[in-house]
Design a protein around this nucleic acid. Structure first.
Lengths: 212, 212
DNA sequence: AATTATATTGAGTGCTCACTCAAACAAATG
DNA sequence: CATTTGTTTGAGTGAGCACTCAATATAATT
């Protein structure tokens, strides 16, 4: 069911200011339908009907169908990565060098909260990434390099202090996002709730896996 | 680029016997195009052109567009899971109880080989699973319960012998397929090759993470 | 060679789609 | 109230889509 709370990300980004009531209803309906059947399988007529507005209204505000998708996805990429950096820097300033456990649990808890708050929108984003090469390269190149640099310098410090395994940074990062991603997909696509104890387990597992 | 080797799975399944040369070319073209832009964004005209056949030929053999997708995906579900069972039973008969390391490394190496051999077809399958709810429930319910039962009984044995952590089986299995899946997605969707050393690292990481 | 069976063609069909645009409506401003 | 500015409408349009089918080519059988 379509809900105004699916717009959490837009509120945070103060992106709703230039939208009328009807245009917001279009966004809600589009998020709902895109997340159910995928962008390519959704028609603008269907979205307009569910939103209770005329089809033309979609185009006068968003230009075309792709513009509607972009309006939904843009806040994801413009907020996910900066927020993650912020959370990392926060850990870093508290303790140096950061403990592996603190590093991983902060990262995980932060991202899990974000996930739950933006379920449908993230589902659309992930599905679209899986679906075609163009979208993939387009959005991945916008992944800020500063984000990756901060993460990697953290890992390098921990390696120097013999706190973690001496793998490539890419491998370490992949292991972390694999474990998070597995739970995310289970939650988003197979409706399996994530219990608190499971998050604890995943953190412990990652700490054991990466400790040296 | 479209290649006959993309049909590996079909050869294994002896599924090519009832196909003519032109129909095989249709399959190759469809695998190529579906994996690039997604099923919903591909047109039958486009597939026919790339295969160098008439559009009608697609429909006389496969009935409709969905039938073409089914013909591509069916061998995946009918072979992936049975093969995995076979590999597991193979480990089991060699040693009882199986060592955690043997269990995980057999599982991983087996699945990695399958992955590399069926890259494009798996990409289509995964993307379609991500894209719409219907496909997801349709294919997941065909996941043989015997497969899961065998896996879980293995895990229970290892738990009884205090070889692994005392989590829910679902959690343990999710951790394993998360780590594998992360590498799979990196390989399939972001074209990152998987080095041998990385597989070793992943196996070690899982053993450390799950050992008790 | 004649006949039957199967494979392939490609122009044609109806339908759905994203998108347009002139007109109607509403809100704000002087 | 009059005018401007912005919003919303919905019938209409052309393009592209999956799919049909009668005709033709090819292969198999007798």
């Amino acid at each position: 069911m379509a809900q105004a709370s699916d717009l959490k990300l837009f509120q945070d980004a103060q992106a709703l200011e230039n939208f009328t009531d009807k245009q917001i209803r279009i966004l809600i309906a589009a998020i709902d339908i895109f997340s159910e059947k995928g962008y390519a399988n959704a028609s603008t007529k269907e979205i307009a009907d569910q939103a209770g507005v005329s089809e033309g209204n979609i185009f006068s505000k968003f230009g075309n169908k792709q513009g509607l998708l972009d309006a939904i996805i843009e806040p994801v990429v413009s907020m996910v990565f900066p927020q993650t950096i912020a959370s990392l820097l926060d850990v870093e300033t508290n303790r140096t060098p950061v403990s592996l456990h603190a590093f991983i649990s902060d990262f995980m808890i932060n991202r899990m909260r974000f996930l739950v708050e933006n379920k449908k929108v993230l589902k659309i984003f992930i599905a679209e990434l899986a679906y075609n090469q163009e979208t993939r390269t387009h959005y991945m190149q916008s992944l800020p390099t500063s984000f990756l640099k901060d993460l990697k310098s953290q890992l390098n410090t921990m390696k120097r202090n013999h706190m973690i395994v001496n793998w490539n940074n890419d491998e370490i990062m992949r292991l972390i996002w694999s474990v998070i991603g597995g739970a995310v997909i289970d939650y988003l696509f197979f409706d399996r709730p994530i219990a608190k104890i499971e998050v604890t387990h995943m953190i412990d597992a990652l700490v054991r896996a990466l400790s040296r």
